[in-house]
Amino acid sequence: MFRRGNREPIGPLEYARRLHLRLLFFVTLVFLYAPIVVLVIFSFNDSRRGGNVIWRGFTTDYYVKAFNNESLMEAFANSLTIAFVCTLVSVVLGALTAVMLWRFRFPFKAGFEGAVALPIVIPEICMGVAMMVFFARSGISVPPDWGYPWNLGNITIAHIAFSFPFVAMVVRARLANFNRELEESAKDLGATEWQVFRDILIPHMRPGLVAGGLLAFTLSLDDFVITFFTSGPDTVTFPVKVYSMVRFSVTPEVNAASTVLILITLVLTALAIWLQNREKKETRQ
């Protein structure tokens, strides 16, 4: 405060120090965060009806209720199962795609590259209806009477289809700075294709695989539209369940459950940033 006079004057290019731009930045942050903060606050609101209108005191009842809501918890478990399997398969498929595009020349390569990028760019609704029509009419579909966890197969297949291109993109960026001489010298010293892949390529790709895996996990956990079209009455994921709760009756449990999911996402993001920073430090040394 008192040191203001000693501060250097704002340089012509220091837009970040201009008051009106700082104000705009602050207002934007309020715009982005206020709804989420209000949601979290109101998840502790002790109000029976609606829960979102008037503050009536602090309670954690709705967290207890959300945890005791069997169908909500089942949907949550489904979401985690799907996200877990989706992450594993997407990382494998994404890594293979990245290695294939990075290492080989092959006919119709540009076409294949475009096709891999397609799930990233097309509107979710188009992919959602395509998966719904495919499972309903192609005859390739997991029968609903197989029971848990196999009945989640259709949703998982759809999630992998849109997640692995993202993983491929991340891993490919990592492969771009791979030193090919490592691979050549390993081969000169008698390593087989598999040994080179396992002992040289995979360790180099690892940060990309981890980042891609976290991305696939979040994408799968967050997806509503595509899941909405591929889920059945017995295979409901967390976002689909929340959607039907929001659609038909606003219950305070939704606030509590949402807060828990936001917390999970925050932890995952923090983990991703921490891993990235550690990686940066390692490469610097």
């Binding site: 294939m100 080989f104 188009c126 992919m127 029509v133 495919f134 289809a161 692995f164 294709e193």
Partner: peptide, 25 residues
């Protein structure tokens, strides 16, 4: 052979679970 081992799984998934569904639509 190496190319096939690397390329077939993602290509299979992309074609069967993405391009074919879009084609049906």
């Amino acid at each position: 052979l190496v190319f096939a081992a690397i390329a077939l799984p993602p290509a299979f998934w992309l074609v069967l679970f993405f391009l074919v569904p879009l084609g049906i639509v």
